[in-house]
Amino acid sequence: MPLGIFAFFATLAVISALGVILQRSPVHSLLALIVTLLCVAALMIGLDALAVGLLQAIVYVGAIVVLFLFVIWLLNLERDPEESGRLGIKLLAAVGAAALVGELTAFLTRTHMSQQTVNSDYGSMAQLAGLIFGNYLIAFEVTSLLLLVAVVGVVAVARRWPSPRLANRPPTLSAKPQT
């Protein structure tokens, strides 16, 4: 990817990322997040990771962000109330940010890393599939378990209490039932 195009997407990604954490309204944060995610997808494609870049756009923007949007609407969240400024937390955040910026400079001052030339099939679906069903077979199978966990977990935690059997139980064992 030429430097100019990289600079464009990188700047846009950083600005929109700041938008995610600085805007008051959750929906605006979410819109900023979409821009960041798409910029990162573009940068991935620029790094010859075409399949993963497209997946990034489809999975994140198409599924995860929609899920966020759905929850925001479901909870009917508008603007946040005035952010309560807790000095300790903010200070901690500042120190953390400083440490991470330090890390950043450690990267940039390191010796120049160049991109190697790669075959034309680099990052193709076929190559990824070869790896996934080869060396990463176990990891792939574990992800199927993870998806099952997600299905069962969401049902368990987000479902409303269905049965009348539970309706007249006290919420905890120590709370006395109301008579």
Partner: peptide, 25 residues
């Protein structure tokens, strides 16, 4: 060609922004 370091730097910056977001919001 853009050096890989720039991508790593951008990654670190985005990670830092995310961390700050978790802490301040």
């Amino acid at each position: 060609m853009t050096p890989i370091n720039y991508y790593l730097g951008l990654g670190a910056l985005l990670f830092a922004i995310g961390t700050v977001g978790v802490l301040i919001r």
